[in-house]
Each structure stands twice: as C-alpha cells, then as structure tokens.
Design a binder for these strands. Structure first.
Lengths: 200, 200
DNA sequence: CAGCATACGGAATTGACGTTCCGCTTGTCA
DNA sequence: TGACAAGCGGAACGTCAATTCCGTATGCTG
C-alpha cells in the first residue's frame, strides 16, 4: 500500500497524484465487474481521463491489474493478521476463508487471476508469502485445538479458495450461493465430528 | 454423439468425414491444453488441415467448442447413468463426481466453459438436463441411505464441480492436488459422521 | 508572471485473431 | 474415364483492443 515517493524520485505533480488515484479507483470498479478482459478505454472513461494518462501511470494493462491484485491480497492478509487475535482457533481460521471468499465474490478479476496458471506475478509474491505464513499459524492452532483435520496443509487453501472463487462467478438464482459451497468445504475441513446446516 | 447423417441431407464425402474427425480430435487436444482461447489456426495445423476446412465443418469457433462440450458432457452423463447401477448409494454418488472431476482435469476448456457466465449454450442443454435428472436421483438415494447430508441440493453440484475445475487448473507441485480438494468437499457432503484421510 | 518540465487527451498505429474468399483438387457417379 | 459438385488450403480481410505518439495544457519554481 505504500504510495510513498521512493527516495531520489521527484514527487508527482498534484494533478498527477489525483489522476493516479482516479485511475486506480476506476480500474478497481471496472475489473471487479467485468473481469480481466475489461478494456483500458473503459477504465480511462470511467476515470474521466484519457487512455494516455492511464498508461502514464501504469505501463501496461498487466501492471495495472497487478497493482489491484496486490491491494486485494493486502486486504485479505490484513484479515488474516486480525484473525490471529481471535480466541477460538476454528473461528479464527474460518473467518479468514469467509473474508477471502467475500473479497472474491466482489471482484471478478481477483478470482480470475487467482485461477490463472501464471497467477502470482512478481509483485504480489511478498504479500502472498506473508499471508501464507499467517494462515499456516492459524492452521497450526486450529489443528492443535482438535478443530481442524490433521491432514490439511497450507497448500490446500489456495486451491480451495480458487474453487470458491469460481463458484462465486457462476450464475445462480441466488447470488449468495457460494456461501453454501464454502460451508460444505469448511465442513469437509472440520476434524471428524458434526457439521452445521447449510445457509439459506 | 450421434454423427448419423440427418435425413434429407447428402452424406459427407469420404475425405470430408475423415477430415471432420481429424479436426474434432485436434480441437479436443488443443482446447484441452490451452483453454478456450487457443487459436483456430492451431487447431487447423494440429489437424494437418487448412483453416478453411475447419470452418467448412464448424461455422464458428464457438460452434466447434460447443461440439466438444456436448461430447464432454455426454461422457459425464454416461458415467452418471452407469452409477445408477452401483449398489452402494454413497459410492454411486461420489463416483460421478470423481469421474466428472477427472474429465475436467484433462480438459482446460471444459472447466472454463463450466465457469463462464453464459456457460450453457443452446446445444449442451439437453445433455445437461439429462445429467441433472440422473444426479438428482443419485442424490435422493444417497440421502435416503443416510450417507449424504440432507440439506444438499442438485444446484450445489455444478457449483462444486466448477470449483474443482478451477482447482484443477491451478499450478501445483503435485498435478493431482485436485484430488485433495475433491476429497475435502466430499467429506463436507457426507452426512455427519467420519471422513477418510486425504490422498497423497 | 515567465519559462519549462511534467502531464494530459485522444487520434493513429500495431498486432493478434476470427472469418471469408476463391482458385485449385479430388471423390463420386454415370 | 470424364464431368462436376463437394471439398480443400491458405492468403487476404476486418475488427477489436492494447499501446504509442505528439501537439497542447497546466502545475511548479524563480
């Protein structure tokens, strides 16, 4: 999130900084709604700016999307950090998944990126690494408490989230249907015992 | 699967029939590997044929993909029919999901189509309808036997399969990682009781 | 307030890909 | 085997979206 000016570089002109913000916001809206193949022109129009300006701030479409992804992952990573403070280990663990799923449900591009093969581009790696670290800890605690199945490993999580992400996109009479999916998955993750009823 | 000549239409010339087959096979290979945005030229090259020939048999790229999807769904639908003959209801139900997942794992385009919003194009609908019917029956039986959670509904299945599909695409040290995902999901679907250990 | 580097807008360029066209080839049938 | 419709190959075309370019506008500095 650090938008601080790197030492040695001149600060952006006031209007430039303002525009950069407008572009980011517009891009967030556009890519969330239409997924990664929304067009740069749309982003520019939505930002009330020329395409040239968009390109002044982000050298390629890929770079722009990457910037958005970093911020999305930071949101989830923050949720994970916060979960470390929750007393009940199962609750702590699941809250991160719910939060992550909710983020995906609101951002079509995010789930597409999540599912894509190249996926993690250079820039998001540090954030993802931190998130992985935190989630590992949450898993460890939940397993120690006997709430989470012992054979679950961190690597299972991205796969599961990726699944939730696509369930999120699938058209359905009820747009909240993905909650059923996550509920099922969470029941599957519970240490052998009982599961609650599915929502809705 | 019926490649029978529709009554009233002249039969294809021998070489044409042969080429149609080559194109379908090539398309299956190419789209499975590269997903729906593989190029028509690639299909043609792989089939050892000119693009024109591809277009002689399938008027648009969309139509070609659709033909592949129909055949993929027919494979799964056949598996579902076969499952009706399995004695153990839980076994019968899960076998369809495993089979479907396996099909997806081998076909990138399939999971993309499955996840896409418009998704079910005209032509696949009949097959999907039949599949849905059969799966409903399998669900009913498994629930009656007390093996499957009572609150699971047919609509949960496409969502879940869609999730598996994307887990399938995600790069992973172990390409069979999706099996862990499906295992977790199946455990989540079990009627409250114990779940088996995850594979590998 | 003048001078200029920084930014801006948006038309033009480029590249990629689906699709069409057409002259040539090859089964098929009498 | 000759004639012709059915097929074929692949160059050419059209569209669409990313990216570049450049003349103009504007914040900053002295």
């Amino acid at each position: 999130m650090s938008q601080l000016v790197a030492a040695g570089e001149r600060p952006l002109r006031a209007d430039a900084r303002r525009n950069r913000e407008k572009v980011l916001e517009a891009a967030r809206a556009v890519f969330s709604e239409q997924g990664r193949d929304a067009q740069m022109d749309d982003v520019a129009r939505r930002a009330g700016v020329g395409v040239g300006t968009v390109y002044r701030h982000f050298p390629t479409k890929e770079a722009l999307i990457e910037a958005l992804m970093v911020s999305a992952f930071e949101t989830i990573a923050a949720a994970a950090e916060a979960a470390l403070a929750v007393e009940d280990p199962w609750e702590a663990f699941t809250s991160v998944l719910w939060r992550g799923a909710e983020t995906m449900a609101g951002d079509r591009a995010l789930s597409e990126v999540f599912a894509s093969i190249p996926g993690a581009t250079e820039a998001v790696m540090p954030t993802v690494a931190g998130l992985t670290e935190t989630v590992s800890e949450l898993i460890r605690r939940a397993q120690a408490a006997g709430a989470l199945r012992d054979d679950l490993i961190v690597d299972d999580i991205p796969m599961v989230m990726c699944g939730i992400g696509s369930a999120t996109k699938k058209e359905h009479r009820c747009p909240e249907a993905w909650r059923r999916h996550l509920s099922i998955v969470l029941d599957g993750m519970r240490a052998p015992s009982a599961g609650g009823p599915l929502p809705s």
